[in-house]
Design a protein around this nucleic acid. Structure first.
Lengths: 193, 193
DNA sequence: ATGAGCATGTAACTGGTTACATGATTTA
DNA sequence: TAAATCATGTAACCAGTTACATGCTCAT
């Protein structure tokens, strides 16, 4: 039971919610989890195959029905145990790479205008995502699955909401600072080390 | 001038600040940028080689002096132009993978305790990083390089500070919610779908 | 003399995306 | 009948980390 790439747990976790096919998995990631996790087909299908081979998942064939044939995967008791063990393991920090911050760090007097553009783009993204979180949270609160699932789901949304609010505030302030800098004659002299 | 992996810009950007060796580059990433960017030697040295081959960087050999021989790289005018072009290009979204949120999403009644542990660990990290940002910002404000560089540097720190503050608040609330759930008898019935 | 830090580089591996190949079914 | 969507899978590629190989210098 060697340690596996995160994809395996991410796939196993999803089929633990309810049985689904590789195609369903992809849809679920793209529609519901896209803001904190994503997977590609190139990873999903091999992962499902391996999970089945090791007895963590089992599949049943669903023939005919709309679209081609489907292979619907569900988690086994052994898989449930394996998932639970992973959930209890400490969270491994994922490598951070924030391109916007890197560009800001490298920017000089001549780069202020494009940086402001980037910030304005980030602001739009954050604001529209904020709307999405608003809508989704109220939907979840009504929908009402079991209390644990509901709470867990709401906590992930709350993280998204707070982080977008924080982003909006930071961006607004950053744009202000950069506008000040643009009109400040002192900053114009690029060689004022 | 085909598009390159981000590493190339990340390396070029650093040597645009002041000439340095591959080893210096690594130190700089590990010490100053580690919270929003990182690079490994396995990427740095090949990147420097390629940047030099294409005329974006040039090196001079520094023999003897403490440690083995050094190859100190500096940016060329052509490299400066190339970097500036990249800074102006829209920021590409980097794939998000937040393992903590994923674990929360998959957690069931039996997993609440380990999840709280993860949150407590995250709280510690956020709080200690907050202290670091505090200390660094005041150092930067005194240090006073040119006004543009100072502002850029402070903006990246401000992002870190705000995002850690946000994390602390979210985590505190999340722990509270989960503690409530633990003592709530309704939640104990895992099959209350 | 030993270990920490300076210094450069390569090879093997891994985790991941993208593009390709194929074909059914539904809907406009 | 064409486009969108359903559906599965593989091969080629890419970006990145880790481990390895080597050797110097400085402080204890």
């Amino acid at each position: 039971m060697a340690k596996k790439a995160k994809t395996h747990y991410a796939v196993l976790g999803l089929i633990s919610l309810f049985p689904m096919s590789g195609y369903d998995l992809k849809k679920f990631y793209d529609r519901s989890l896209r803001f904190f996790w994503s997977e590609s087909f190139g990873q999903i299908y091999p992962a499902l195959k391996m999970l089945e081979e090791e007895g963590f998942a089992e599949s049943q064939h669903e023939s005919g029905a709309r679209g081609g044939d489907r292979k619907v995967f569900s988690i086994t008791p052994k898989g449930q145990e394996y998932l639970r063990d992973w959930l209890a393991e400490p969270v491994e920090p994922n490598p951070v790479r924030n391109e916007l911050l890197l560009k800001i760090f490298f920017a000089r007097a001549g780069d202020i205008k494009p940086i402001i553009d980037h910030l304005e783009a980030a602001l739009e993204v954050a604001e529209s995502r904020l709307e999405f979180y608003q809508a989704t949270s109220s939907a979840i609160e009504k929908e009402n699955p079991n209390p644990v699932m509901r709470t867990m789901h709401l906590l992930t949304l709350d993280y998204g909401r707070r982080s977008m609010e924080m982003t909006v505030e930071w961006v607004r302030n950053a744009i202000e600072e950069l506008e000040k800098l643009k009109t400040n004659p002192e900053a114009k002299k690029e060689n004022s080390q």
